[in-house]
Simulated assay, not measured.
Amino acid sequence: MDKEVKLAAVRQLLIADESRRKDKEFVLTAVQQDGGALEYVDESLRTDKEVVLAAVQQEGVALMYADESLREDKEVVLAAVQQNGNVLEYVDESLREDKEVVLAAGLEP
């Protein structure tokens, strides 16, 4: 993905009014282009599994901005570590030693 497109998505969220940060369709488009844009979305959408999955599939590190409840969701965690194995530090403790998660992150169990 072109770096300028990613930056544009983040900029759009930064300058967006509160209603845009809560607009699921708008937010989905932004996080699909730049998962890190999850940092700027309304808290209510950081608990939305569809939004968070889209973000971590694009950029695993976006997991750090996800609601705690989704950091312990195995599907979300697997998507994040498959994209970037270095995100284990943001994974809920209950899954840090899960064999499937560890293997997906490219580590030895």
Rank of each mutant, 00 (worst) to 15 (best):
D23G: 11
K22P: 02
R46I: 12
V41P: 00
G35L: 04
R46F: 11
E43L: 01
E39M: 14
E50Y: 02
Q57T: 15
S19D: 13
E18P: 13
R21K: 15
K49I: 09
V56Q: 01
V31N: 04
A16K: 11
Y40L: 09
G36T: 12
F26R: 05
A55M: 12
F26T: 01
V51P: 02
D48A: 06
L45P: 09
V56R: 00
V31M: 04
F26S: 06
K22C: 10
D17V: 08
S19G: 00
A30H: 10
E18C: 10
R21S: 03
Y40I: 01
V51A: 03
D48I: 07
E39L: 11
V52T: 03
L38V: 02
L53K: 07
A30W: 09
A55S: 10
E43I: 11
V27N: 03
E43T: 11
K24V: 08
E25A: 15
Y40S: 05
A37P: 06
K49C: 02
L38D: 05
T29H: 14
T29F: 04
L28Q: 14
E39N: 06
V31H: 03
R21L: 13
E50A: 15
E25G: 05
L28W: 07
V51D: 00
D23L: 09
I15F: 07
R46Y: 11
R20P: 00
F26Q: 06
D23S: 11
V31R: 03
V27D: 01
D48F: 04
E18K: 13
L53Y: 12
L28M: 14
Q58K: 15
Q33P: 00
A37M: 12
A30N: 11
F26Y: 14
R20K: 15
E59I: 04
L53T: 12
E43V: 14
E50Q: 11
D34Y: 08
D17L: 10
V52G: 04
R46P: 07
E59L: 08
S44T: 15
L45M: 13
D23W: 07
K49M: 05
R21Q: 12
T29N: 06
A30D: 09
D34R: 08
L38I: 10
V51L: 03
D48P: 04
S44A: 11
E43Y: 04
L53M: 15
Q33A: 14
K24N: 00
Y40C: 02
G60S: 07
S44F: 01
R20H: 09
D17Y: 10
Q58I: 02
V41F: 10
Q57Y: 06
L28R: 05
T29S: 11
V27F: 03
Q33D: 09
F26I: 02
K49D: 02
I15A: 03
D23K: 12
L53A: 08
R46L: 09
L28G: 08
V52N: 08
E59D: 15
Q57G: 13
D48C: 09
Q57M: 14
E18V: 09
K24H: 05
